[in-house]
Write a protein that binds this DNA or RNA. Structure first.
Length: 212
DNA sequence: CGAATGATCGGCT
DNA sequence: GCCGATCATTCGA
């Protein structure tokens, strides 16, 4: 793997429109575990192995920003065809990265909650002002975006286009179903009964998950 | 225009 | 475990 921005060399198979543009966001959230989130941002390459995700699905999901298929300037990205980034500012501080899925008009998305450092660890440490790797480097939706250089300016960015700054690729065989835990999502207590739905998925044995 | 509110994090008790 | 930071977004007046 190279760290040169000019090179688009990949270590695996980039996920395509057919992967993202499916109706079942829960399956996609599961299948993203073990895939690699790659960024070429500010002329620099980095990547992390996805170990924790959450699914959000309008219209019935009260935790989803597009609950009831509510279209606002912010949520419009979620209604695009699958394969683009939905990035928004949370608590005025944190940039949270989601992957839009489904067909155009379906507001479905997968929040990436944690990654294990994969490519260019020194850069990820630098972006977080860390001396040495430890889980807080990239375990959590607000910190992994810092480690990978993702910001709200990437909202709406394609994950499919050949020159896109962010994409996901497959580098290894999928984890066994028994290695995956399904649990309620984090931080959505305001969402009533939806808060209990087990739409959070993580690799049970990973040390890089935000919360067990 | 004013006010409320977060799909979080890190520091402090 | 608790709590404040910090601001774009949203909604209501």
């Amino acid at each position: 793997m190279t760290n040169e921005y000019a090179s688009r060399t990949t270590a695996g198979r980039r996920l395509d429109a057919a992967f993202y543009r499916r109706d079942d966001v829960l399956s996609i959230a599961r299948e993203l575990l073990g895939k690699y989130l790659v960024t070429h941002i500010d002329g620099r390459h980095s990547a992390g192995r996805i170990v924790e995700t959450e699914a959000y699905r309008a219209p019935e999901d009260r935790a989803c920003h597009a609950y009831g298929n509510r279209r606002t300037p912010r949520t419009s990205t979620m209604f695009e065809a699958g394969g683009v980034a939905y990035v928004y500012l949370c608590y005025g501080i944190h940039h949270l990265f989601n992957i839009v899925t489904g067909m155009e008009g379906q507001a479905h998305a997968v929040l990436i909650r944690a990654v294990e450092p994969a490519d260019n660890l020194p850069l990820m440490l630098e972006r977080r002002s860390f001396e040495r790797p430890r889980p807080q480097l990239s375990a959590g939706p607000g910190v992994l975006t810092v480690a990978l250089g993702i910001r709200t300016r990437h909202d709406g960015s394609s994950l499919i286009a050949p020159d896109s700054p962010i994409w996901v690729e497959e580098r290894e065989s999928a984890p066994a179903d028994t290695a995956i835990v399904a649990a309620p999502r984090i931080g959505v207590d305001y969402a009533g009964e939806c808060a209990a739905w087990p739409w959070r998925f993580y690799l049970e044995k990973s040390k890089w998950v935000s919360k067990k």
